[in-house]
């Protein structure tokens, strides 16, 4: 067996605590003992919260749901890295065997003007919903669809679309970007729909409206640092941003929108 038997870790946690959006926040230090290396990062936080409840202190609020890396709900900055040290991994899929006995772990929420803090490690990512609302869809009413195989999509086109569509909307791109830019998120949806025949009718309108909303939501601009790509748990490629730029300029200069 190449499984290393589980060990127990004693850790020092420095966690951002903030009672509400307007309240001041700061790092608070906690000790946790006997954390099994088989635990996920969130299970380690569960242990801390049980400990806090036992001592009468309010547990740390953090977003999480599916705990299998697909819903995009969880996400914290762990020692300065969005979703922690592993690439292509969400916080819920990060395991404690990645850490050592005696480590100090700094845990902060996603920070960006467009993602105001709700409480502790929870932020408001509804700006993403409003961007999708601005055009991240194909306008087809239920019942209007033609027979599926009349729309042919070559295998490689489908794969490109799928790779872009894999975005889980967690916001790690924004959190890790020094400019708090949402370009990777926006580009993933724009690329997904622009590559497919179904997305052609609204291709120009979509990119213009989504970018306008992105700007209005106070996300920063892209300076091509590639931090978002490195932090993305769904491995969305930076080339999508180039495609977004292309789509946007084409729409702005050539379309009638």
């Amino acid at each position: 067996m190449n499984h290393v038997a589980s060990k127990n870790l004693n850790l020092t946690l420095k966690i951002w605590r903030q009672a509400g959006p307007k309240q001041p926040g700061g790092l608070k230090t906690y000790q946790v003992r006997g954390i099994s290396t088989d635990m996920s990062f969130l299970e380690m936080l569960d242990v801390l919260n049980e400990q806090l409840i036992a001592s009468g202190e309010e547990p740390v609020a953090f977003d999480h749901d599916c705990r299998e890396g697909i819903c995009g709900t969880c996400g914290v900055v762990i020692n300065g890295q969005a979703h922690g040290p592993d690439s292509g991994t969400t916080t819920c899929q990060l395991h404690m065997r990645r850490f050592h006995d005696g480590d100090t772990i700094v845990i902060e929420p996603w920070l960006a003007k467009a993602f105001p803090i709700v409480r502790d490690l929870i932020v408001d990512r509804s700006a993403f919903d409003r961007i999708i609302q601005a055009g991240g869809f194909v306008s087809v009413n239920t019942g209007n669809a033609p027979e599926a195989n009349t729309t042919l999509v070559p295998h490689h086109v489908q794969q490109d679309a799928m790779n872009a569509a894999a975005c889980i909307g967690c916001g790690a791109c924004v959190a890790s970007c020094k400019n708090a830019s949402a370009m990777l998120f926006v580009s993933a949806k724009v690329s997904h729909l622009a590559s497919l025949p179904q997305g052609q009718a609204e291709r120009s309108k979509r990119v213009l409206n989504m970018v306008a909303t992105m700007d209005a939501e106070h996300f920063g601009n892209c300076t091509n640092t590639g931090e978002c790509e490195a932090a993305c748990p769904a491995k969305i490629k930076l080339s999508n941003i180039a495609q977004l730029n292309r789509e946007y300029m084409k729409a702005a200069l050539l379309s009638k929108e």
Binding site: N79, S87, L111, K113, G226
Partner: peptide
């Protein structure tokens, strides 16, 4: 302004 707040600790994942 978009970044607004800075992390206490920041490391690159690249």
């Amino acid at each position: 302004r978009a970044r607004r707040d800075f992390y206490v600790l920041k490391q690159s994942k690249v």
